[in-house]
Simulated assay, not measured.
Amino acid sequence: MTQTVLTGNVRGVAEIKLQTFGLDHHIDWDIGAYGEDDDVRAELVRIALGRAAAKAGQPMSPRRRR
């Protein structure tokens, strides 16, 4: 499973915040979406899905895992 970040923070701030608590080790920062990507936070999901699809070479869709 791949983990990333969706946040209204700019990427650099998100990295610092997660590094501070040791939560950054398993994050794929390149497929995340950040405050500098769009002013509308709901758009960050679309952006991250697009980045993940490009990296994986296959379409991605949102789904809930339990």
Rank of each mutant, 00 (worst) to 15 (best):
residue 14 A to N: 04
residue 39 D to K: 04
residue 61 S to W: 01
residue 2 T to K: 04
residue 46 R to C: 00
residue 52 A to T: 13
residue 59 P to M: 03
residue 57 G to K: 07
residue 20 T to E: 03
residue 11 R to S: 01
residue 48 A to P: 01
residue 38 D to N: 11
residue 28 D to Y: 06
residue 8 G to Y: 08
residue 24 D to K: 00
residue 54 A to Q: 12
residue 58 Q to D: 03
residue 4 T to G: 06
residue 31 I to E: 11
residue 41 R to P: 09
residue 33 A to M: 00
residue 46 R to P: 01
residue 65 R to T: 08
residue 61 S to F: 10
residue 5 V to C: 07
residue 2 T to C: 00
residue 25 H to V: 13
residue 10 V to Q: 10
residue 28 D to G: 05
residue 51 R to V: 01
residue 1 M to R: 08
residue 38 D to H: 15
residue 6 L to H: 02
residue 14 A to Y: 10
residue 21 F to V: 15
residue 23 L to P: 00
residue 41 R to H: 04
residue 21 F to A: 15
residue 52 A to D: 04
residue 6 L to A: 04
residue 28 D to Q: 06
residue 46 R to H: 09
residue 8 G to C: 05
residue 31 I to P: 04
residue 60 M to A: 13
residue 14 A to F: 08
residue 11 R to A: 07
residue 65 R to K: 08
residue 15 E to S: 01
residue 42 A to G: 01
residue 11 R to F: 02
residue 13 V to Q: 12
residue 61 S to M: 05
residue 57 G to M: 02
residue 52 A to N: 04
residue 32 G to D: 06
residue 21 F to M: 14
residue 23 L to Q: 03
residue 19 Q to W: 06
residue 66 R to K: 13
residue 6 L to N: 00
residue 32 G to W: 09
residue 18 L to Q: 02
residue 57 G to V: 15
residue 7 T to L: 12
residue 28 D to H: 12
residue 9 N to K: 12
residue 25 H to W: 06
residue 52 A to R: 14
residue 62 P to D: 11
residue 35 G to N: 02
residue 19 Q to K: 15
residue 23 L to Y: 06
residue 49 L to M: 14
residue 30 D to P: 00
residue 27 I to M: 14
residue 5 V to D: 05
residue 7 T to P: 11
residue 25 H to N: 11
residue 22 G to D: 06
residue 30 D to E: 12
residue 30 D to L: 00
residue 27 I to N: 10
residue 57 G to P: 09
residue 40 V to E: 05
residue 23 L to S: 04
residue 18 L to A: 13
residue 60 M to S: 10
residue 21 F to R: 14
residue 48 A to M: 06
residue 51 R to N: 00
residue 6 L to S: 04
residue 50 G to A: 02
residue 5 V to Y: 01
residue 29 W to N: 05
residue 9 N to C: 14
residue 10 V to S: 05
residue 37 D to H: 04
residue 17 K to M: 07
residue 37 D to S: 03
residue 19 Q to Y: 00
residue 29 W to R: 10
residue 38 D to A: 15
residue 42 A to T: 15
residue 19 Q to S: 13
residue 53 A to M: 03
residue 24 D to H: 09
residue 52 A to I: 05
residue 61 S to R: 12
residue 64 R to D: 04
residue 46 R to D: 03
residue 42 A to W: 00
residue 5 V to P: 04
residue 23 L to H: 05
residue 30 D to T: 03
residue 59 P to E: 13
residue 45 V to F: 14
residue 37 D to F: 00
residue 57 G to W: 09
residue 21 F to C: 15
residue 20 T to D: 08
residue 57 G to L: 09
residue 17 K to P: 05
residue 60 M to C: 11
residue 28 D to K: 14
residue 59 P to H: 00
residue 52 A to W: 07
residue 44 L to I: 10
residue 53 A to N: 09
residue 18 L to Y: 03
residue 41 R to S: 13
residue 63 R to M: 13
residue 28 D to L: 10
residue 16 I to Y: 02
residue 6 L to T: 00
residue 18 L to N: 07
residue 47 I to L: 12
residue 19 Q to D: 13
residue 38 D to I: 08
residue 3 Q to L: 10
residue 54 A to M: 06
residue 16 I to N: 08
residue 4 T to A: 07
residue 25 H to T: 13
residue 35 G to M: 05
residue 11 R to E: 15
residue 13 V to Y: 11
residue 16 I to S: 12
residue 32 G to P: 14
residue 55 K to Q: 11
residue 14 A to G: 10
residue 17 K to Y: 10
residue 11 R to W: 05
residue 39 D to Q: 14
residue 20 T to Q: 05
residue 26 H to T: 09
residue 17 K to A: 14
residue 52 A to F: 08
residue 62 P to I: 13
residue 39 D to E: 11
